[in-house]
């Protein structure tokens, strides 16, 4: 059962006690979120049945197709900024052509998955939290429970599957647009021709860079779904609570993605 009754403590001014409570609440929250994730993972086989297929496709459409516009702009400018910044430095050594590999490697390894994760957390994750939070507040989740329809299977599993599929695809898209953005800046600002740029890029980028980036994207997708759905389910106190759940989703997702992103990089690139 994920609908939990809110814990109540008498307010205290004791600093140590307060800090302790916050730490405990955080640990308890992480634990519960993990349990929810495990339950959703266990339910993934049910996603193959016709009962859930429609929901999964709908979530894929909402999280994937609808984010393409903003992702395009973000990816293009990320690539352009990367090219410009590194190009200006490299020009001092007359090595501008190396922006090809610089932009491509940074996009594949780091910026592609991270930028995609940021955008999806801010747009899709927050909407997951708001939607589930609103359902909690209006007793729709309680209604599901009473009808013995498991809220995790019905609400979390389709979103989890959707993001696990869409995050890598969107990341590939972000990578491509970012690299193209770099090429445009190379051609117009730095005098690096497109063929030279792509030659340089393919010479240094390896498959491993792509795969590690895509692995990150999948992990980010799982993190975003877990954080947003958990925050949605733990909404209390009406509309104010929905706002709080949305804000927390974005903030916590960003922090967790940064930390986990670092750890994955560390793991694969010693």
């Amino acid at each position: 059962m994920i609908i939990q009754e809110p814990e109540h403590f008498e307010p205290t001014r004791n600093f140590v006690q307060n800090t302790g409570r916050h730490v405990l609440a955080m640990l308890r929250g992480s634990g519960r979120a993990m349990l929810m994730l495990l339950e959703a993972m266990r339910d993934i086989p049910h996603g193959l049945s016709s009962k859930h297929r429609h929901d999964i496709l709908l979530q894929q459409y909402v999280s994937g197709v609808k984010s393409l516009g903003v992702l395009t702009v973000v990816a293009l400018f990320t690539g352009m900024i990367l090219a410009l910044q590194t190009g200006i430095e490299l020009r001092r050594f007359a090595q501008e052509v190396y922006i090809g590999s610089a932009v491509t490697l940074v996009m594949l390894r780091e910026m592609g998955p991270f930028m995609t994760g940021m955008i999806i957390a801010a747009s899709v994750g927050s909407s997951f939290a708001a939607q589930i939070g609103t359902m909690v507040v209006s007793e729709e989740v309680s209604a599901l429970e009473v009808m013995s329809i498991k809220p995790v299977r019905y609400l979390v599993m389709p979103r989890l599957v959707a993001l696990i599929i869409m995050m890598p695809l969107l990341t590939v898209y972000t990578n491509v647009i970012g690299v193209v953005g770099g090429a445009i800046v190379g051609q117009t600002q730095l005098g690096v021709s497109m063929p030279a740029y792509f030659d340089n890029a393919t010479q240094y980028a390896q498959n491993k860079d792509l795969y590690v980036g895509l692995f990150k994207a999948v992990v980010f997708g799982i993190l975003i779904t877990t954080v947003s759905c958990y925050q949605g389910f733990s909404t209390t106190q009406g509309a104010v609570g929905v706002g709080r759940a949305t804000r927390r989703t974005v903030v916590i997702s960003f922090l967790v993605m940064l930390a986990v992103g670092y750890m994955i990089t560390r793991l694969f690139y010693q």
């Binding site: 009962k51 007793e139 209604a143 013995s148 329809i149």
Partner: peptide, 23 residues
Amino acid sequence: FQGAALLQWLNVGDNVGLPLRMK
């Protein structure tokens, strides 16, 4: 439930039939 607790993105027929469709 007090506010009826219908799922907002489903139409009336799907709401009423939801338990049968899912279970």
